[in-house]
Simulated assay, not measured.
Amino acid sequence: MPDAKSDLKDDGELKEFFYQLKTLEKDHFYAKIWHIDIISAKDKKSAKAQIESELDVILAEKITKKETKAEFKIFIVELTNEWRKHWTTVHVCKVCETPYTHLMKKQMNEYCNSEVCSDRCNLLVRKDKIDEYRLQYGKSPPCIYKITNKESGMVYIGQTTQPVTLRWYQHMFHLTGTKFHEHVLNSKIDDWQFEVIEVVKDVKTLNEREQHWINHYDSINSGYNTATAKAEDKSKKRQKSQDASSNNDDKKEEENHEYKQSTENL
């Protein structure tokens, strides 16, 4: 690694340069970012030479027909105070409270919004915003519902922030093997009565209000509920759903990679 002091000339000081290295693969509609960072040097030419030396690559700012040796295209620009602040200021993720900078996110290929550290945290923020929108505009107020078996009078108590008709449909046709769904499976749809018993103003109290109605109808001992309305239980379900979604995304990415390799061999 070159000695930084050797780059100083008279009263000149080292400057900071932001750079991106992009691939030159012909089968892409646009070049992919391979590396991104900030480097100190006396000028742009010295910064480029230092990057080539440190990474052992050949770089070019412009790719022409005469340029045949370059391995990567480099975008490099001197950092202004404004852009230095943008790339290096430390933020704290509003979801997981992990400290991060925008430069760190770029280096990790995270393209989420500026309030969070990763795409995973961004999904959680997006869900919260959807819930806020539903509450503000009344599209789907959070509520407690009761499903009653007309013949036995046994009930199931649940909560939802989804449209209640969707939740009713899910219980009737997306069975999961629970005690309640086993009874649904062995009956007809008109054996059941669905009703909203409380519209909840504050979504944070959903678990509390669900537990109130579970106790009121004693639906664990004499109904179809099998567990209390604990916040941690709901969180685990949401996390399981998010992990499943993440696994599906990984699987799709792997399938796309395999497809690309197969088409390259044609």
Rank of each mutant, 00 (worst) to 15 (best):
K44W: 01
S187A: 01
F180S: 06
C117W: 05
K146S: 06
K237F: 05
Y133C: 08
H183V: 01
G223Q: 03
F173H: 15
S46W: 02
S46Y: 00
E110T: 02
I157C: 06
Q107C: 03
C112L: 05
E54I: 08
K139C: 13
A70T: 02
F180P: 01
V164I: 15
T23C: 09
N215L: 11
D131R: 13
K240G: 08
F17C: 01
R167F: 05
M108W: 06
T98D: 10
A4Y: 04
I38N: 04
K201T: 12
A231T: 14
N109C: 06
L124N: 10
N113K: 02
T161V: 10
Y224H: 00
T64L: 10
G12H: 12
E182R: 15
Q211K: 07
S40M: 07
T101K: 12
I39K: 01
P141G: 03
N265V: 13
N207Y: 11
S118C: 07
A41V: 05
E67Y: 05
I144M: 04
A41K: 01
I130K: 09
K26S: 09
Q159G: 14
R126G: 10
R126A: 14
R167Y: 07
N207G: 15
T161F: 09
Q261M: 02
K129F: 13
Q159H: 06
R134L: 06
Q211M: 10
K22R: 12
E97M: 09
D243A: 14
L8Y: 05
L135Y: 12
M154P: 00
T263C: 05
K240E: 15
S114Q: 12
E208T: 13
V196C: 08
R167P: 02
K179S: 06
K236T: 12
Y133E: 13
E182V: 11
N221C: 08
R209A: 08
K45H: 06
E71F: 02
D119Q: 13
I36P: 00
K5T: 12
Q242Y: 15
W168G: 01
T226R: 01
Y259G: 00
K150E: 00
N225D: 09
L206W: 12
K234V: 12
